[in-house]
């Protein structure tokens, strides 16, 4: 069921019997109809093994299952919300940025350390991503939270996009990301530009960027 964005900080999602939806705990603002909210022990889809995987990967944001019949409004902490409609492609996003997503989407944890070796570890530190990220794929809607408004930058082959690691929110499609550094002697003596690290995204897809360098 597609999410409907009401304003910059609120989304509306229809719930129908037989269809599950996952949302961050405590993110419900209001609802119509008969809807139940159940805390999700495993933090998403799959069984206990998936849960352990998420715990180990530190991608285990407390989620709740939303079931029933009606419409639910979601919003959290005054953060801006961006809706991504997936049509068979994948979205990589940090689990704590997930506001709500359709139960029809496949949720998995992705190891990012294989991309880039040592720089991958540094990238995880700088972006706040860590070494793991959550991957959603299939058909359905995802509501992603960001500090400040979100805009999309298209990535086409041969034309990589550079993004400030702190402003990076999520990416979609077949994209590899690499941390490019422009460290110089100025950074060593504390007179750097403050833009020593950049995230270089290449491939085919879209990157979502927030208009703020503040983390959630």
């Amino acid at each position: 069921m597609p999410f409907h964005k009401i304003n910059g900080k609120m989304v509306e999602a229809p719930v129908q019997p037989g269809q599950r939806m996952f949302s961050q705990r405590g993110a419900m603002l209001g609802y119509r109809g008969e809807v139940s909210f159940t805390p999700n022990l495993t933090g998403g889809q799959g069984g206990v093994m998936s849960m352990i995987g998420r715990r180990v990967a530190n991608e285990d944001t407390p989620l709740m299952t939303v079931e029933g019949r009606g419409t639910v409004l979601f919003g959290h902490g005054g953060h801006h919300v961006h809706v991504v409609d997936l049509v068979g492609d994948t979205l990589c996003v940090e689990a704590d940025r997930l506001l709500a997503f359709d139960g029809t989407l496949q949720q998995s944890t992705l190891f990012m350390g294989s991309q880039g070796g040592v720089m991958g570890i540094v990238r995880g530190q700088v972006t706040g991503q860590g070494l793991f990220t959550t991957r959603l794929s299939g058909h359905g809607s995802v509501a992603v939270m960001a500090h400040g408004g979100v805009f999309e930058l298209p990535i086409t082959p041969g034309q990589p996009v550079h993004v400030d690691p702190q402003a990076y929110v999520a990416h979609r499609g077949e994209v590899t990301n690499r941390l490019s550094s422009a460290l110089g002697w100025r950074d060593m003596i504390g007179r750097g530009s403050g833009e020593a690290f950049q995230l270089e995204l290449s491939g085919q897809g879209t990157v979502y960027v927030q208009a703020s360098e503040e983390k959630l």
Binding site: R25, G26, M28, F37, L41, M64
Partner: peptide, 10 residues
């Protein structure tokens, strides 16, 4: 175990 959904009360 499992915590609360945070939405028990409306």
């Amino acid at each position: 175990l499992g915590g609360a959904s945070g939405e028990e009360h409306q």
